[in-house]
Simulated assay, not measured.
Amino acid sequence: MKLILMLFMVLLLLLILSFICIWIYHNNYSSKSKRKNVQNIDSEKGNTPTQILSKFSSIELVGMKKGIVPIIDYKQIEKSTNSFEENNILGVGGFGCVYKAHFDENLDVAVKKLHCQTQNAETEFENEVELLSKIQHPNVISLLGCSINGDMRFIVYELMQNESLEAQLHGPSQGSRLTWYMRMKIALDTARGLEYLHEHCYPPVIHRDMKSSNILLDANFNAKLSDFGLAIIDGSQKKNIKLSGTLGYVAPEYLLDGKLTDKSDVYGYGVVLLELLELLLGRKPVEKLAQVQCQSLVTWAMPQLTDRSKLPNIVDPVIKDTMDLKHLYQVAAVAVLCVQREPSYRPLIKDVLHSLINQTCFVIVRLHQLILRRKRN
């Protein structure tokens, strides 16, 4: 009897062990399967630079910078720009040029070539790559990769087909391609990008070089912030930071006292908003009056912006008759608040965004009404 009982217990134990083995195997298999499925889904989405670039046979990825940013073979970059041919130059910056590069039949990109012979240039390169590798937002330029060759540094971005806002406003077309609605859309896109940096990045990011040449426009005139070489992480309330930026866009407290906050970006945004209004046929942020005299757009515009009778007369004729005056006054009021000398009087960018969203909705309704009216006529 005892022998039978012992045999029964052994069989029962073996049975239990078998079930445990089967359960472990099943769980491990399912887990691997799920991971594989997730990888496949992520690959189909193509959300990372590596996934985007790996689809094109002409691009050789030679490594990853800090496990995040693809490092593209220098020879591939040289070939894609046709040895940095002058005809491929898209723009010129402080440390080098930006070139159009053709990697494949379906992939044109922009390549920033930096001469890193000074520590400042090297710092800006590292800062931009570091920041953009962590930032993903529809209104911030996408980093695709980078490359190093001697004292030359290269940053590869998505190509923005309609260049910069500055080129559109002050270039050959003199703003004629930008309707009132498109300008408000650009203002809204730019505010969204800044709001993401200030409110949704941890720690927050201050761009520090907010200007129209750093707002790029894609094929559909969607706006994206670019050039993060001077950006500061968690710069709120920081003082005595080395002055950097562009005259005409730099906030007074930063220019005079070296005090940098997110309100410094808001000031630069306000100047861009004034440019979008195309005051006095494309007046630039700083205008040369004489050999030693300059006048800022803000100084010139303030008396006009606060007088409703004068405001319609200083707006570019290209857009003057395509807007509702009420909406013009509202946008001008936002610009006035953004460029206040005292930072505490300026709104947060999230408040600017909220205001512009309401006004843009108004513009869309108004545009729809005009279309319907034309159809009836």
Rank of each mutant, 00 (worst) to 15 (best):
R153T: 03
M152P: 02
S80V: 04
I77S: 04
K239Y: 14
K288I: 15
K320E: 12
Q161R: 02
I186V: 13
I72Y: 08
N240W: 01
L5Y: 13
F56Y: 15
R341L: 11
T246I: 05
K238E: 10
L188I: 09
R376M: 13
M1A: 11
V250F: 04
M6R: 15
A110E: 03
A110T: 04
I24N: 14
L216G: 10
L90Y: 04
G248P: 10
M184A: 13
V272E: 07
L243R: 04
V10D: 03
V10W: 07
V336N: 05
N47V: 02
G258M: 06
G268Q: 14
K65M: 12
L143Q: 06
D218N: 15
N28Y: 13
M9N: 11
G258Q: 05
L169Q: 02
Y345T: 07
E253P: 00
Y329E: 15
L144G: 11
T190Q: 01
H207A: 14
K259M: 12
R308N: 13
P172Y: 11
L144P: 01
N82F: 03
H198L: 12
L90M: 06
N358E: 12
P285K: 12
M323C: 08
L15N: 09
S31L: 15
N220R: 12
N127P: 06
F56V: 13
Q51W: 00
V365C: 10
L260C: 07
A187C: 10
P285T: 04
K75L: 07
L15G: 12
T123V: 02
G150L: 08
I24H: 12
Q293D: 15
G171L: 12
V271M: 11
I72W: 03
Q119Y: 09
E105Y: 01
N47C: 06
K211L: 02
L367K: 12
G46Q: 14
H354V: 01
Q119G: 00
V352P: 11
L61D: 12
L188G: 11
L90C: 01
T246C: 03
A101M: 04
S33C: 10
H198D: 06
V156T: 11
L277S: 08
H368Y: 11
L15W: 13
L178D: 09
L367C: 07
A290G: 06
S236Y: 13
M64T: 09
S58F: 00
L230I: 08
G235Y: 11
K224H: 14
Q39N: 09
D316C: 07
K65Q: 14
N240Q: 03
I233V: 13
Y29P: 00
T360Q: 15
P172S: 05
H170M: 09
N214A: 02
E78F: 09
H137L: 04
I77N: 05
M182F: 01
